[in-house]
Structures are given as C-alpha cells and as structure tokens.
C-alpha cells in the first residue's frame, strides 16, 4: 500500500488498540449487521447450501455416465471438488465483496473508505464478511469428509502436510483472484463480468479433474491463473496419480508458492487501481 503507516498514539490510561482488537471489532460489527434480518438470513444460508449442492450435482451428472472422468473415479473427482469448494468458500467469505467493486465505486462508498485511516482493502474485507456464505463452506466440508472416506490414500507425513496446506492455499489463491477482480473494475467499471471469467471460471476449473480439459486450458489454468493448483494437482499427489501433459503431478506442491506470488501481483494491481482512482499515476 502507498499509505504511510503512523504509529498508534501512546495510550494515557487504557490499553492501546491493537490490530487484533480492531479486526475483532470490525468483524463482529459485520456479523451483527447480517443477523439483523433473521428470516432472510436463514433463507440465504439455505440458498448457499443448495448452490453448493447444484455444483456437486453438475459434476455427478457427468460422472455417473462414465467409469472415469479425466482419469478419475467418482470418489477421486469428489476429492477434487471438495478441496476446490472449501478453498473457494473461504476466499469468497473473506474477499467476495471485491466482486462488486464497481458498485462501491459508483455509489461513492469508496470515498468514505478512502478518508478513513485504514487500508481500503482491509475495510472491504470486513465491511461485507458474508456469513451466509458459511452455508457453502459447511457443504464443502461434508463433501471433503465423504471424499476421504471413499478414497484410498496412502498417508505419509508429506501427504498429511499437503492435505492441511491445500485448503489454505486454495483460499489464498481465490482471495487473490477476488482482489484482482476488484482491482480490474477500477478500469472496467461496466466490465464486472470480465473478472468473473477468472474468479467464478477459476472455481469451475478448480472443481473438475483437470485432465478432462483441452491442453491449452490446462496450461492456462495452471501456470497463468493457478486454478488447478487449488485442488486437482494436490489431489494427484495425495492419490498417487499421474497428471496430464499440462498439469504434471509435481505441480501438486505448487499451491502455496503460487498463492504467495499471486498475492504479491494482485496487491500491486490493487495498489495501481487505487492510484488510478486518486489520479496519482498509472
């Protein structure tokens, strides 16, 4: 961020405001806002669960017609779907708000955020922490449990580590994609859907066996937009399968480094976007 950080003024007679305390306040304010409309909130959570269910049914409607799909059995494909779903729902939960950046810009809300002493991105993350999206996460976790029960993984310490890293790296990758989607809307105010190709398109790719895609798509969604690194590639390693030409199985370990690199790039893009808005260059 371009903003200068100044140290908190020393507290005279009370504990200073730590980052953790501020974050807790912001998030809890957001949570209370949402439960303000209780009836609709329940319907929202249900809607999110059904959404996750249809995503699963889409996969099932294809897989039940074939013995293997992209070289994976139903149970193996379920593992990919579950990893992708967990990662996406966490990323969406925390940063999904940036998807509607063009509205925040249009209705002037951005200006209010800009005159507060906090980075805009942090305020966005906490301004619309959508609890209803938890419905999706719950379904995703159930799918993950089912996939673990149905597949036969030869566990070793490395695989355990990979299993723990994978959902977190997935959440980080989708979070970064959402930040990028928000940033792009500073240039393309009417082009919100353009960014959806990478966020929601990324989710779609991530939840399917990558070998079932055309080779150019495999390469693009692994090495440019790292969607297959979210679930498919690590699943190959966990299941001991070989990947297709565009997604060799060693890419299974690339999720975390890819997330770090992507975050760096997307934060640069975000910074350029804010600078574009303030007219400070770019």
């Amino acid at each position: 961020m371009a903003e200068t950080k100044t140290a908190a003024p020393p507290a005279a007679d009370s504990s200073p405001v730590t980052n953790a305390k501020l974050l807790r306040l912001l998030v809890s304010a957001r949570l209370r806002s949402q439960t303000a409309y209780r009836g609709s909130f329940a319907a929202d959570v249900a809607g999110q669960m059904v959404l996750a269910l249809t995503e699963f049914v889409e996969l099932y409607a294809i897989v039940h017609n074939v013995p293997t799909f992209g070289g994976m059995t139903f149970a193996q494909a379920l593992l990919v779907f579950a990893f992708a779903s967990v990662g996406f729902s966490i990323g969406d939960l925390i940063l999904g708000e940036t998807d509607s950046m063009s509205e925040v810009i249009r209705n002037g809300k951005l200006e209010v955020l800009l005159v507060r002493p906090l980075p805009v991105l942090l305020q966005l993350m906490t301004s619309d922490f959508q609890l209803r999206r938890v419905g999706r996460l719950v379904f995703a976790l159930i799918a993950l449990a089912a996939a673990l029960f149905l597949t036969d993984i030869q566990w070793d310490p490395g695989k355990v580590a990979l299993f723990i890293i994978t959902p977190l790296a997935g959440a980080a990758i989708f979070g970064a994609l959402f930040v990028g989607a928000g940033a792009v809307q500073f240039w393309l105010l009417d082009g919100r859907q353009f960014a959806n190709a990478f966020t929601y398109g990324g989710r779609y790719v991530a939840s399917m066996p990558g070998a079932a895609m055309f080779l150019p798509l495999q390469v693009f969604f692994t090495f440019v937009v790292p969607a297959t690194l979210v679930a498919y590639a690590p699943s190959l390693v966990l299941l001991g399968l070989d990947g297709p030409a565009g997604i060799p199985s060693w890419t299974g370990w690339l999720g975390l480094p890819a997330a770090v690199v992507l975050w760096g790039l997307m934060l640069l893009l975000w910074r350029a976007a804010i600078r574009k808005y303030t007219g400070a260059g770019g």
Binding site: N65, F69, G201, M208
Partner: peptide
C-alpha cells in the same frame, strides 16, 4: 463494455464446459 465482457466470460465458460463434456463423451 458490459456486453462484451459478458460475451468474453460466457466464451471462457463455454470453452471449459465444452472440453469437460467432450472428454466425458470420448471416455464413454
């Protein structure tokens, strides 16, 4: 711009979806 970006996104989804269905059909 909204129309063209929508067309772009629908085309990307089309590519992904077509490749998935073709792969399943070839296996079947």
């Amino acid at each position: 711009l909204a129309a063209f970006s929508g067309a772009f996104t629908n085309s990307v989804f089309g590519l992904i979806r077509a490749s998935l269905l073709l792969s399943a059909i070839s296996t079947a």
